[in-house]
Design a binder for these strands. Structure first.
Lengths: 114, 114
DNA sequence: CTGTTACTTAGCCATTCGGTTAAGTTTCAG
DNA sequence: CTGAAACTTAACCGAATGGCTAAGTAACAG
């Protein structure tokens, strides 16, 4: 349960680029090689590779090389940590709806208003 | 329904920093001034301000100035676009579970195996 | 062996990022 | 009016990002 904040950093960072999100989408249809992943983008191959390395080091994606082809595939579970972070906040925000400090804030406003 | 990709970029980017996420957490307990938000961090004020500007330009947070105090507060709805992005992918990934290409992949494996 | 395919590595470049200090500005308190 | 408080602006810094080209390696295909 030890949330590694740096892992979240890298995950969010990886997701903060349109091209990278595009590659994730492509991988949603199944594994793909570097060249296949590069195909939709107007980028040089080494640029694509850097994006893929960012994705891999974030844990969102895995790769293995067989022969001269490196195949990437999604780690679908990986998004869970992001989901978890969001869920935690939302839960907390709802909780503070009916908390004492909120109650006090409301009633003190009432007192001033009246 | 027009998903602005740049908005998602800025949202994920804003979330990719631990300090910024910390400020969001603080704002989960209610509005706060710049100084209050800065207090837990070992950072110069201008640095905190930059973080807050990143958060604000991502839409996760709003601020208004009254007197010499600028007060920040959460836009709790803002996380929805991130949630939505994640939900979309997960839905897509499940769908491809029982799609033709998957079926073909499975049966061709069978054919080879047998 | 000889290409060609499929990556890889290396180096460069401009911009952005996260951080700083120093010097404003504006407001409120006295 | 004077000073402290609460930002704000400006200028700078080193590292990371996103992009490139050029050159290298590794593995099939013939």
């Amino acid at each position: 349960m030890l949330e590694e904040p740096l892992a979240l950093d890298r995950m969010f960072q990886a997701l903060s680029d349109q091209s990278r999100r595009g590659m994730i989408d492509r991988l949603g249809n199944g594994p793909a090689s570097v060249t296949e992943l590069a195909q939709p983008f107007a980028m040089a191959l080494p640029t694509v590779m850097k994006h893929l390395q960012v994705l891999e080091s974030s844990g969102l994606v895995l790769s293995e090389k067989s022969g001269r082809v490196r195949t990437y595939h999604l780690r679908k579970e990986a998004l869970a940590s992001v989901e978890h972070w969001i869920a935690e906040r939302k839960a907390g925000w709802n909780r503070s709806f009916d908390r004492l400090d909120q109650f006090l804030a409301d009633t003190s406003t009432e007192t001033i208003t009246e």
